[in-house]
């Protein structure tokens, strides 16, 4: 049935300029008036996986080695691996071809569990500081790294990908149900810094630059 559509829990009030249909998702590549940044991009259509098992060391998802230490992340081939704890890793598909989900039963597709957004550009951490007490600028953290903690009062996974001035940015997931209120919260906090919704193209461009 061709009119079956998938909808993200993230909705921006901006007007799409360019979009494409991918799978059954309607993906906005660019919005009108995206401005100078910082930007907020909805990535909820991108695949996220949960990998859980007692012996994570034996697993090499997509040929990538899982970081040994919890809260470390690794980005390779457009895939982000975040070591969550002793037995669990989250896998985000950031860029490139669609992801084939491994058949082993230790993997669960959790794309639908969360919303997935990126916040990047100038003053990203000034925005974060209004919503979370987590220290994104701590000297002991090497990018990319994972925070599992509260952001706008909701437990989130936040991965800091880059901390270099205008290239700074994070990607964030939280329970899909909180989508609307989370986006409202982020946009409200970002207002004074000019935070603007942007399309996927701007994200792809950023991710390829860092």
């Amino acid at each position: 049935m061709k009119d079956i559509k998938r909808y993200s829990a993230v909705e921006f009030k901006a007007t799409p300029l360019k979009n494409e249909t991918r799978g059954n998702w309607d993906v906005v590549l660019e919005y009108h008036g995206e401005g100078e940044g910082p930007w907020l991009v909805d990535l909820s259509h991108k695949t996220r996986l949960d990998l859980q098992c007692a012996d994570l060391a034996a697993k090499k998802p997509f040929g990538i080695t899982i970081p040994e230490i919890p809260c470390r992340s690794v980005m390779e081939k457009g895939i982000l691996l975040n070591r969550m704890n002793r037995i669990q890793t989250s896998i985000y598909h950031l860029d490139g071809e669609t992801m084939d989900i491994p058949a082993e039963k230790e993997y669960t597709d959790v794309t639908e569990s969360t919303i997935f957004v990126a916040i990047f550009g100038n003053n990203v951490f000034s925005i974060c500081e209004k919503l979370s007490a987590l220290d994104f600028a701590g000297a002991d953290q090497q990018t990319p790294f994972l925070f599992q903690g509260p952001f706008s009062h909701v437990p989130c996974q936040i991965v800091t990908l880059c901390r270099d001035a205008e290239k700074s940015g994070v990607v964030l997931t939280c329970s899909r149900g909180y989508g609307k209120h989370m986006i409202d919260g982020i946009l409200h906090a970002g207002e004074e810094f000019g935070l603007t919704p942007a399309g996927e193209a701007r994200f792809t461009n950023w991710i390829n630059n860092i």
Partner: peptide, 8 residues
């Protein structure tokens, strides 16, 4: 229990 975090 790390409720808002890693779930340990």
């Amino acid at each position: 229990f790390h409720r808002d975090g890693c779930g340990s």
